[in-house]
Structures are given as structure tokens and as C-alpha cells.
Design a protein around this nucleic acid. Structure first.
Lengths: 337, 337
DNA sequence: ATGAAAGCGCTAACAC
DNA sequence: GTGTTAGCGCTTTCAT
């Protein structure tokens, strides 16, 4: 594989001149520059990024470590990050931690070792290994879930508030036994949504019933049992606040298996807008999080910190929006009764 | 940031011994090894991957360049790739080409320059820039769509056959004006699915009607117009073969907007299984592609080629499976009439 | 404007 | 078993 000195030799100049030409630096004699270009293309020269990075001690690459590639919420974040990075001349590499601390740690280590310019992470847990990065001065921004250690920017959503709103909405619609199916303990969004649900009950003067609360993994295909347990309670809940869309799928499947109908039989509000929300009958009421926006803001924050390492870390909280649809309306009941 | 010589100095040994210890090479005196480990942790030493890669001229990283991160089909492939890479000690970085040739080319160049061990790509078009890689000896495997240039492994799906089967299925169910909404011209899967659809018509002795064929971008939110055009034809098609799930969403939305029902009003078979296929009413008939399997096989092929660069490139074709559900059954009609 | 030369941090011969 | 040393390919002073 042709190196820079091959090109230099062929063009009859020094490696410095080749480097300057190929990087568009200072003013190089047009004649020499042309000779260099020619030699480079003739040799099919491809710069060795490894060597360049080693010399420069930096890379125009951002790492984005998300906890589930198959969750549309996170892929939407990825789009936001990518769009911003792209226009700033950065590339982004996506790493899937799969909600596993070990994988997350591994990817963060690689990011560190490969000296990426910065990383955006949706931490699996509150006590992650981001200090590997922050202690070395690599800018980090946390999305979706906070980090206990200071030093990173954060872009979160006021999800507790949103969960309360969802609960209040269900209660106002006339549901009386509102349950909650949330994510694993220790995952902040899961705990927050549960707390918001409890806030909603309390505000309405309803006493919480622990048996109406279940937890499940956030990933697809993990919440089946929890959903079934809830629906098979005696008496069953007549409405559910559901913490994300993969879990919502499980709930809807369990409902269908029992011949139950969302809305009329069991009120439903699920976190995260999905393309199919309006395709099911009744349509799914959701708490829409500004996923793309989260990614956009996170990338902007990261680039700002890369440009100025002394910048103080900030915390941004975005708002979620309740979109009421048919799955949180009981009004079919009178018609049927 | 601590370097290997800092560690060597602190442990009172040579850099070579540090390197050997940290890489678990040959047999290092346990006493020295312990001193090295201690010095390393005290200094918070993190190896510089850039330097290591430069020296080794290789990286334990695979690049996966997919054409749409928001399409579940591709994220499922990513899962397959990741699972096998993981167990082989490789990490995978995901790059989103967004169906844009320029982005794809850019990521391929980065992959080359960063000297990744190999790349898996779902090419935006047939004439991609993979030769950047193949000519330099970097193993490449194409997934979902073939590459015209030889030299890469391929993992494809017999999608033409599947499209024919879907069409035949609709015809057999009693639909008479079966249309097709496929992807952009030049994208092989789009053209293949169209051809398969035409095969299906021909086999059944039905003359193809060009007005019943439309094309749209493969990405979400791009097929609305095409879907509407099709449904507003006079007379409209009474069934549709749809080339992927983002397009299927557009079709289902257009149907709903017109008060039409899948199955009874317009028969529907869409490519790609999605989590919500059984949640809509009627359930969505799909052609399920073995996405996870594609990723798995592609990664295995890639690792094999990395291990033995002289290995001959292979072509694997996997089968898709038609899953008939309610959206391709007309039987509601009699009940309604 | 151009070239010579010094490393970036690491690994792998090679010598001891 | 351990140390010495020569680069990997590039960028960037520092001279000229």
C-alpha cells in the first residue's frame, strides 16, 4: 500500500510538501502541487488515518453509545446526532450497549483508546465507566438518563412529569384501577416514570396499590410475562401506564390474546411515539419524547465542548408531550352496554 | 496522559516488559508483572489504541454500513452482526448511509483509512466505492443488495421469488387488480421485488398494468404521495404488494385516511416482519426476511475472510417466508355484503 | 515556498 | 526472561 513517501519520491518532492498539498495547507507551488496530485492518484494513495491520528492525537469521529439499537426512540436520537455531526465535518459511529453494563464499558474503553473527539451515551446505569473518558478530558454528554458523576453535559426529558400527566389523564378519563408497567429498577427513566405515576395517583387522591406495578426489561420480547401477570390479576387493572414502546407491544399482544380491547377494556398510555401508533385500533395514546431533538442538542453540546474544553457542563431538560388517542378513552363502553 | 514508558519507568522495567505484561504475551516474571500492573493502575494508564493500531496495522473493529438506521430490517441485521462479532472479540461500529451514495462513500473511506479489519455494507447502489477497500485487501461483504464488482462475499435474500409468491397469494385470494409499490429504480431489492410481482402476474396469466406500479424512497415518510396516487386511481387497485415496512406504514395510513380497510377493501402483503404486524386489525400479511440471520452469516463470512484473505468470495442466498394474515384475506366482504 | 528531521505511543525483532 | 532499538505513516516545527 502506497505511503506518503512513495508519493513524495514519485513526485520528486519531500513528504512535507505532499502532506501540505493533500491537506490544503499554506501555499504550495501550483506546479509541485499538481505533480503531487498526479503521483497520488497514479499510486492510488490512501492516507493512513491511523498514522495521522497518532500524530494529531485526535479524530474527527464521535461515538454514540446507545442502549438498544432496536428501539426506535434511540435510533431517532442517532439521526439527530448524525445530522448535526455531519454538517460539522464529524462522523459518528454507533455502538449498541444492549442494556448491558459490560458491553457499554467495552465500547467506552474503545472510544477512549481510539481517541474519539467526544462521546454521547445513554448510560445503562447511573454508575457507568464514563470516568475513563472524563478523567482524560474527552467530552461526554449523557442522553435520556443522567450520570451521577459530574463533568458531563446531560440532555434529559422531564419524564416524571410526563408520567404524572399520563396517569392524571387516565384517571380523568374515568379509569379507576390504573397500573404501571415500567423498566428495570435502577434505570432512571424507569424509576422516574414509576414515580410520576405515583405522583399522578397521589394528586388525584388515589391510594397506590403495589400489586398494580410491574417491572420488565426495556427490550423487545422481555415484557410478556409482566404484561400477562398484570392482566391476570384479580381484579385486573382497568388502565396501564407503560414505560416504552417495546413493552407496549407486549401489553398489546397480551390484550389481544385475552380478547381485550385497549381503551374500552383497558386504558393505555405508552411512552414514545411510534410509526404504527395510529395504525392500530383504537389508536395508541402516547407520551411523545422529542428523540430527534435530544440527539441534535446533545451533538451541539458535544461539539461546543470539543471546541472549548473549559466549557462548563450543562443540563438540558426537554419536555415530553402527551398525545391522547383512542387507547385512553373508555367511551366505547356505553355504546357496547 | 500516562504512556507506556511512564509505566515502565515507574515499575523499573522496560517498555517491552510493560507491553508484554499488559498483552498477556510470553511468560513474564510474576514479580515484574505485578509491579507493572500496580504501576499501570496507579498511573491510570490507558493504552493508546491509535499507536497500537499503527504498529500492528490492524484493528479489531468491524464496520457495518447500513442504508437506514430507522428501518427495523437493518437494525435486526446489526444485531446479528454484533452477536457474532462480540464472541470473536471484535467490536462493530455502525454507520448510517441514509440511502445516500455520498455518505456511504464517506464512511467507506473512513473505514479504509482507519484500517478496520473488515466491513459489511448494504450498498446504496450497485456501483459503490467498495473498490477502495477491496483493492487494498480489506474484506468486504455485501448484504441485502448485490455488488456488481466481484471480490466481496454476498448475503442476499431470494426476494424476487418471495415477491412472486406474495403476488400469487393475493391472486389466489381472489384479488384482481393487484398493484405494486416498490423502492427506487436502481436499488436491486426494489427492482427484484417489482420483477417478482410481474412474474406472479404472468404466471397467473394476468396482464400487467403499468399504472398499478409506483416507486417511492425506501425511508419513512417518503411514500405518502405514491400510496395516495395508487389508491386514488380510477379504478383503484384491489390489492398491493409493498416493498418494505416504512412504505407499508404510508400505505396503511393512506388506507385509513380513506376509510378503507386492509384485506376486505385492499389486499396487502408487505415485505419485512415488524413487531406491530399482529397488532393492527386486520393483521398485516408479510414476507418475513431472515434479517438477524443475514447479519449472522455476513459476520461469519467476514471473520472467515479476515482469518484467511485468500479465501474465495462466496454468495449466499437465504429464503424469505410468506406469512399470510388478515390483510390478504377478502373474506370480510361476504360478511359485510 | 520547500526540505530535513523529530517524534506521536506502541510492538516486535533481536540481542543478551 | 528482559532490555534495546527500530520503525509503523504521518504532521509539523525549524531551517533554509
Amino acid at each position: 500500500m502506497a505511503t506518503i513517501s512513495d508519493v513524495a519520491a514519485r513526485a520528486g518532492v519531500s513528504t512535507a510538501t505532499v502532506s501540505r498539498t493533500l491537506n490544503g495547507k499554506s501555499t504550495v507551488d501550483p506546479v509541485l502541487a499538481a505533480r503531487v496530485q498526479e503521483a497520488a492518484t497514479e499510486l492510488g494513495y490512501q492516507p493512513n488515518g491511523l498514522a495521522r491520528n497518532l500524530r494529531r492525537q485526535e479524530t474527527a469521529v464521535l461515538a454514540l453509545v446507545i442502549s438498544d439499537v432496536e428501539n426506535p426512540f434511540f435510533t431517532a436520537i442517532a439521526r439527530g446526532v448524525e445530522d448535526v455531526a455531519q454538517t460539522a465535518g464529524y462522523s459518528v459511529v454507533l455502538c449498541n450497549s444492549d442494556e448491558q453494563l459490560a458491553k457499554e464499558r467495552r465500547y467506552l474503553e474503545i472510544a477512549m483508546q481510539e481517541r474519539v473527539a467526544g462521546v454521547i451515551v445513554s448510560p445503562v446505569g447511573p454508575s457507568t465507566s464514563v470516568d475513563i473518558l472524563t478523567s482524560r478530558g474527552t467530552p461526554v454528554v449523557a442522553v435520556d438518563r443522567p450520570l451521577t458523576e459530574p463533568g458531563s453535559d446531560q440532555v434529559l426529558v422531564d419524564t416524571r412529569q410526563a408520567a404524572q400527566e399520563a396517569t392524571t389523564h387516565l384517571l380523568a378519563a374515568g379509569y379507576r384501577r390504573v397500573g404501571c408497567l415500567t423498566g428495570p429498577a435502577g434505570v432512571r427513566t424507569a424509576d422516574d416514570r414509576l414515580d410520576g405515576y405515583l405522583d399522578g395517583l397521589r394528586t388525584a387522591g388515589v391510594t397506590a396499590d403495589n400489586t398494580l406495578v410491574r417491572r420488565a426489561e426495556y427490550r423487545a420480547g422481555c415484557a410478556d410475562v409482566a404484561a400477562e401477570e398484570l392482566l391476570d390479576l384479580e381484579p385486573p387493572p382497568d388502565a396501564l401506564v407503560v414505560a416504552n414502546s417495546p413493552i407496549a407491544v407486549a401489553v398489546l399482544q397480551a390484550l389481544a390474546a385475552r380478547g381485550l380491547r385497549a381503551g374500552s377494556d383497558v386504558g393505555l398510555v405508552a411512552f414514545d411515539e411510534v410509526p404504527w401508533a395510529t395504525l392500530i385500533d383504537p389508536q395508541l395514546s402516547v407520551v411523545a419524547q422529542p428523540a430527534y431533538e435530544i440527539g441534535r442538542v446533545a451533538a451541539e453540546l458535544l461539539l461546543a465542548r470539543i471546541g472549548d474544553h473549559s466549557r462548563q457542563p450543562t443540563a438540558t431538560t426537554l419536555e415530553a408531550r402527551l398525545i391522547p388517542r383512542g387507547s385512553s378513552r373508555r367511551d366505547r363502553l356505553p355504546a357496547a352496554g
